[in-house]
Write a protein that binds this DNA or RNA. Structure first.
Lengths: 150, 150
DNA sequence: GCCTTATTGAAAAACATTTTCAATAAGGGA
DNA sequence: TCCCTTATTGAAAATGTTTTTCAATAAGGC
């Protein structure tokens, strides 16, 4: 859990109170958070934390692959801490935003076929799944039942 | 090629000069364009076209699945016309931005496995591939050769 | 503990997108 | 074909997000 400090340090960056606060907030959330939300929560640990610093910290952490930017809905985006590094993607609940990280697998064939077809050489990709988490599926069933009762 | 007019009409929307201009610009570009770029190009057809109208038109066309929003790089996004409707994704050249549409296939197994593992029910997904188109691969080889000659 | 220098926070700038509202023009019906 | 209703438009202003600037601060190697 102090891995990230090592990584920052190795990259020649300092371990500062704002960075600790932002990292802690992200690691203890299972949903993507906006810079604003991160600031609000992180201020519990570091009251003077400025929004500018949050942006700068997120940029740094994203470059180091400690954090991933997620585009949950049109125009709305958030950040999550990642454990699996570069080779992972996210499954986000459209209702409560709970997010699960999963390893990147199963695309190789599609990519190979596409390279053959188009002549492109694929370097990178971006995948995100949207759905309902178990808890929100249950809630939704209750809503449907109530409607039927009317 | 007039399909989109039919679709707009069926949705109870009018076929206006601004909409024609935006649609034509998007259909004749093989790279994603920003609202600004769309406006600049579309003004050749409709000089008074306002940026606000471009935004509104893009929103409408996106809802009707005639256009897709693409997040090519951090913070940079653009719009492309789509032919395959909802069930397609895009492969974008990171150098010249040329974009190829491809049908959505090959994810079913990954999704099923993930549903089993997490209990989520997956409703939707978002995939984008980044790479180099054949032309830009060729250019890059030339650059590498030149470097070696030094 | 000191000193160098990366990092921070506040204000201002830059940028992207949305809202508001009166003027305009699509296109269905007479 | 013309008229009338109403969706659509464009400009200005509002809103919201992200970046830049710069002096003050604090990390952490020595």
């Amino acid at each position: 859990m102090t891995d990230w400090k090592q990584l920052l340090s190795n990259a020649g960056c300092r371990i500062t109170t704002p960075r600790r606060a932002v990292m802690q907030v992200l690691m203890s959330s299972d949903a993507p958070l906006s810079p604003q939300e991160i600031r609000e929560r992180a201020q519990a640990m570091h009251h003077e934390l400025g929004l500018v610093t949050v942006y700068r910290t997120l940029k740094l952490l994203t470059e180091l692959n400690l954090v991933r930017r997620i585009h949950t809905e049109e125009g709305c985006c958030g950040y999550v801490a990642v454990a699996l590094g570069e080779a992972c993607h996210h499954l986000v609940c459209t209702s409560c935003r709970r997010t699960v990280e999963f390893p990147c697998t199963g695309l190789d064939d599609t990519v190979a076929e596409l390279e053959r077809l188009t002549g492109f050489s694929v370097q990178n990709h971006w995948l995100e799944l949207l759905g309902l988490c178990p808890a929100c599926q249950a809630k939704q069933k209750v809503v449907i039942q109530r409607k039927e009762e009317c």
